[in-house]
Amino acid sequence: MAFQLIDTGGSRSFPERHPLLTAAAERGEVVVVVIIGARAAEAFRSVGSRERYAAILIELGTECLGTHTGEARGEEGSNVLGFARFRLGTAPPSDLVELVHQPRTPETAISAARKLFEDHGLKVALCGDFPGRIIDRLVRPYYNAALRRLDEGLASADDLDTTLKLGLGYPEGPIQLLERTGLAEHFDITQALYAACGDPAYAPARRARVAKQRQKT
């Protein structure tokens, strides 16, 4: 499938070469437009005759797709979708693409987007336009709780990690994982969710706040 890539630089989803980026050079009629990088919003505004594409995909940060497209009484939805490759802090991106749709996004746009990512070895999880999408929405409260419980002496960091690894088969326990991928990075994501949802479960745990403060100084 021929597609056009608009790379505005500094993409979190594609920080390095990836088969999907190189495939953009393939010739043919452009069916999908993919906009990545820190300035995706501006680039999106300059895409003309949008109806001619099966789908236009904008890389999202912590913002909702609606901030780019506008919204209308729960009936918004067009060939414009959002996406992000899930990535924990400083770890490289995973193979998961969270693909964001709106209530009236047409099925044709969703399947074109899905196919593009799957053709290049990525796995797609479709989700609505909610803060934190799927993974961040689910795991940040769990990470905050683990950090809080560590402070409160529920168990040692090693025993917390061992319990979740042996008890549930997780490849890594929460404390080890947050240390490896960045407590300050966890702070940024969970703080954004806290601001968006107001749910105290997202309020950054003390250890994340400390790490963030140390990063600043």
């Binding site: 899930f86 924990l88 995973s94 193979d95 998961l96 969270e98 796995k123 999880a125 479709l126 989700c127 609505g128 909610f130 999408r133 799927i134 993974i135 929405r137 689910l138 795991v139 997780y170 490849p171």
Partner: peptide
């Protein structure tokens, strides 16, 4: 937010 199969696939793939 998402269907069960999408949530499960996301968690397994990403984590």
């Amino acid at each position: 937010v998402a269907a069960p199969a999408d949530i499960d696939r996301a968690i397994k793939t990403a984590l």
